[in-house]
Amino acid sequence: MLYIKCPHCGMRPQIEFSYGGDASVKRPELNKEISDQEWDDFVYNRKSLRGKHLELWQHLSGCRQWIKVERDTATHEIFKTFKANEEVA
């Protein structure tokens, strides 16, 4: 079970969180004309990365904040966690 540092609450066990997928995906702006391909990439297409992955988690049973977690998908090592509005260096 992972041990995740919520940037708002501190170290918390994984059971308090829910996973939210790839954090690098940007939702296309509203009311903007986009191609089928762009939309498919946003909705469906994900790289199944091995290694460093920036992902979203929600601290569901805690502060309910969505956070970004930089995690190695192969080793589960967590390098850093970020608040939702924090720039990822």
Partner: peptide, 13 residues
């Protein structure tokens, strides 16, 4: 609720 929080916190802060 999670859905609304997702959009408010991440997409349209």
């Amino acid at each position: 609720l999670s859905h609304l929080e997702y959009y408010l916190q991440l997409v349209w802060p």
